[in-house]
Amino acid sequence: MKSPLGVIWGISLALLCPAALAAELELQGTRLLVSGMLDGTAVKAFEEQLASGHIRTVVFENSLGGTPEVASEFAQAIRANGVNTEVKGQCHAACAYAFLAGKEHRFGRGFQVNGLLIPVAGRPRPADLVSRWNGDDGVRTLSDFIAPPAEAAPTDTAATALPSAAAASASAPAAVQAAAAPKERWQANQGVLFVSTPTLFGRVYNSFYCDGTQGRDMSRCELLSDADPYKLGVLTP
């Protein structure tokens, strides 16, 4: 039998399937609402809105997926303009790293289940969690997923056109493998999941490690102990 959290999470994700659409922006006074996948289509408009100086808070609402490169662009604009960030509903993958770039980054209030899924390359050790997303450490963690510029890689087209990952591993030059590795490590469903669930007595926070095999059934993720999002700097007071 699934836990109540698993049931709530399964329902919320089933309702959020349409959120895989391209990112959309909506201006609400001094708040800029961002929803949908961070696929790069709204980067320029996002940067222009923040550069106007009128935005105080960027609100990510049900934003699932995106690439590390786009996450870096959103994060850079947020950091450069010193705005706060907020999550309402779900914020996964690229959205999570953009969220962490806020001057203050918090979960929104209300009766929704808030979830932040931060991609990581493997199961983090307790020592890794302590500083992984604090300040510049979050930027360095994100940069690990971003491949170096294409011109830095050899122009051996025969090697890069291999039909399978196994063949590439056996035959491609080391530099080509190094350039491809970051993208292979970026898995939108693999990472550390922070969940905030409303109850009659306030919000309950839980942290999980998801290895990517769970699909949309987040109740299959492993519960992490001593991973309070406030202590780890994932959420600010």
Rank of each mutant, 00 (worst) to 15 (best):
E26M: 06
G82F: 13
G36D: 07
Q76S: 12
A71S: 12
Q76L: 09
G40N: 11
L50I: 09
G40L: 12
L21S: 14
A94K: 03
I55S: 04
L116T: 04
G110K: 08
C95H: 00
F46G: 07
V43L: 12
A51T: 06
Q76G: 02
L25D: 08
N114V: 08
S35G: 06
L100C: 03
A22T: 12
L25N: 07
I118K: 03
N81E: 13
V58G: 02
A22C: 06
F107T: 02
K44E: 15
A96W: 08
A75E: 11
K88T: 14
A94T: 05
F74W: 15
R79K: 14
F99Q: 01
L21E: 10
G110A: 07
A45K: 15
V59F: 00
P68W: 10
E86L: 13
G66P: 04
R56K: 10
Q28E: 15
G65I: 14
M37Q: 11
V70G: 10
A77G: 11
F74T: 12
V83N: 03
G110D: 10
Q90H: 04
A20D: 07
Q112T: 12
V58M: 01
F60R: 00
V70W: 00
G65R: 03
A45V: 11
R109T: 09
L25E: 10
R79W: 15
G115T: 13
V43W: 14
F107H: 00
G65C: 10
G53N: 05
V83G: 06
G108E: 09
D39P: 07
Q90P: 02
L21R: 13
L27P: 01
G65H: 00
Y97H: 14
L25P: 01
F46S: 05
K103N: 07
A121Y: 03
E104Y: 00
N114E: 08
A93F: 06
H105G: 05
T85I: 07
T41I: 07
F99P: 01
S52A: 13
T41N: 13
Y97R: 06
I55L: 03
N114A: 11
C91Q: 04
T57F: 01
T30D: 14
V113M: 10
C95K: 01
L116I: 10
S63E: 05
A23W: 01
L21I: 08
G82P: 05
C91F: 08
V87C: 06
Q90D: 07
A71E: 08
G65A: 12
G40D: 12
M37F: 00
Q90M: 13
A101K: 05
L117E: 02
T85G: 05
E69N: 13
V34W: 01
R106A: 08
G102A: 05
E104W: 00
A96D: 00
H54N: 11
E48F: 02
V59L: 07
L27R: 15
P119L: 11
A42M: 11
A42G: 09
F111K: 06
G36C: 09
V70M: 11
V70A: 12
F46C: 01
E73K: 15
L33G: 04
V43Q: 12
I55C: 02
Q49M: 09
S35E: 11
G89P: 02
P18D: 09
F111Y: 04
A19Q: 10
T57S: 03
A75P: 04
N81L: 08
C95V: 13
L21T: 11
E24R: 15
T41F: 07
H92Y: 09
P18G: 08
N84R: 09
A51S: 13
S72M: 13
E69H: 08
Q76V: 00
T67A: 15
P119R: 07
